[in-house]
Design a protein around this nucleic acid. Structure first.
Length: 309
RNA sequence: GCUCGGGUAGCUCAGUCGGUAGAGCAGGGGACUGAAAAUCCCCGUGUCGGCAGUUCAAUUCUGUCCCCGAGCA
């Protein structure tokens, strides 16, 4: 009987020093960092999305950072596919995979598995999106109440994204969301995961988030946004929806002063951190640490790995 | 100094033909299965600028004072 391959997962809200903790672990044993953050995958926004810098990347191999062009969409399913490949690759090199990031859905999809819903054809998707725009999500929700009452009961009539998603899945596959979630064959990933979480009160995190944004601006966040806009002038492109990107774009187009853009950026980042905290509070089996407790985190990871042989 | 607007929730503002008031944003809590840094749900008492008058009752009408903006001097 083989034991399941060990991986370490470092999670927590934005700006809590997850990267530094990962590097601390990599200082003790051969390890590679794999990103599970939905925004740090974008090539055009290394500063604004707080991707590890050159020094940090030099400490150990890093994967799934800054490889996607702004006009391309990242999804949970695509992420799982990429992450599984990377984990295999890293394990093949005899290294410990350390998953680092803040997108709760991505981590859960990787560890708990995700329904194998096929990719939805572009024309179906477009048709559904046009309908929501015209008739509102409530119309789709009313239909969903007939085709899939269980799922309809779980999502709110005003939820544009989830109602559109349920409609396109039904149209394209002839199966309901409920069927895909409960009847389709998908299993949890075969990893033994050590989950390490960064815990901090939002009120304590807030001043740090504001300071971090000022550092980003000093390091050229504005030039980064300007260059990205030259490369991809569509403000609705997937990469532009990141926090900080949209605000800086507002400044570059003269819709906001720089001070207003900064203030909005801070507020949105704070609200986002709050949502992350809510999500991770529900996640189970997490070993919680305060930001900066990198020694104890590395101790834990080392001990845990030794126990498993 | 005069005229006209304004002064209502942390911010921007709506409203009350007189019966003590409500939206958006912010904030707090929560949800979350291919857009997730997304999307969505729940949570609203604040001397309605101060003082006085009329009235059973004033944030609403009247007077006066203070503050802000625009115009005229």
């Amino acid at each position: 009987m083989h034991s399941r391959p060990p991986i370490v997962c470092l999670l927590g809200p934005t700006g809590t020093g997850k990267t530094a903790a990962a590097i601390a672990i990599a200082g003790r044993l051969p390890a590679s960092v794999i990103n599970f953050d939905s925004r740090q995958v974008y090539r055009d926004f290394p500063i604004i999305t707080a991707q590890p810098d050159a020094d940090e990347r030099a400490a150990c191999p890093h994967h799934l950072y800054g490889f996607l062009p702004t006009e391309e969409k990242m999804t949970a399913a695509k992420f799982v596919e990429l992450a599984v490949d990377r984990i295999e690759e890293v394990r093949g090199e005899g290294r410990l995979p350390i998953l680092v990031g803040g997108t709760g859905l991505y981590l859960r999809s990787l560890l708990s598995g995700i329904a194998p819903i096929p990719e939805i054809p572009g024309d179906v998707r477009r048709k559904v999106l046009e309908r929501v725009a015209k008739e509102g999500p409530q119309a789709l929700h009313a239909e969903l109440s007939r085709t899939d009452p269980d799922y309809a009961a779980k999502i709110h009539p005003n939820d544009t994204q989830r109602n559109a998603r349920a409609a396109e899945v039904w149209l394209a596959t002839g199966r309901t969301m409920t069927w895909w979630h409960t009847e389709s064959e998908h299993a949890p990933a075969p990893y033994a995961a050590l989950k390490v979480g960064m815990r901090i009160a939002l009120s304590e995190l807030e001043p740090h988030l504001a300071g971090r944004i000022d550092v980003m601006l000093e390091r050229g966040a504005l030039d980064e946004a300007r260059a990205a806009f030259a490369r991809c002038p569509d403000p609705d492109a997937p990469g532009w929806t990141g926090i900080g990107c949209a605000e800086l774009l507002g400044f570059l187009r003269g819709e906001l002063t720089l001070a207003e853009a900064r203030e909005k950026w801070v507020r949105n980042t704070r609200a986002y951190a709050k949502r992350q905290i809510t999500w991770f509070n529900k996640e189970e089996d997490i070993h919680w640490f305060a930001p900066g407790e990198n020694g104890p985190i590395a101790d834990l990871a080392e001990g845990w790995l030794r126990e498993r042989g």
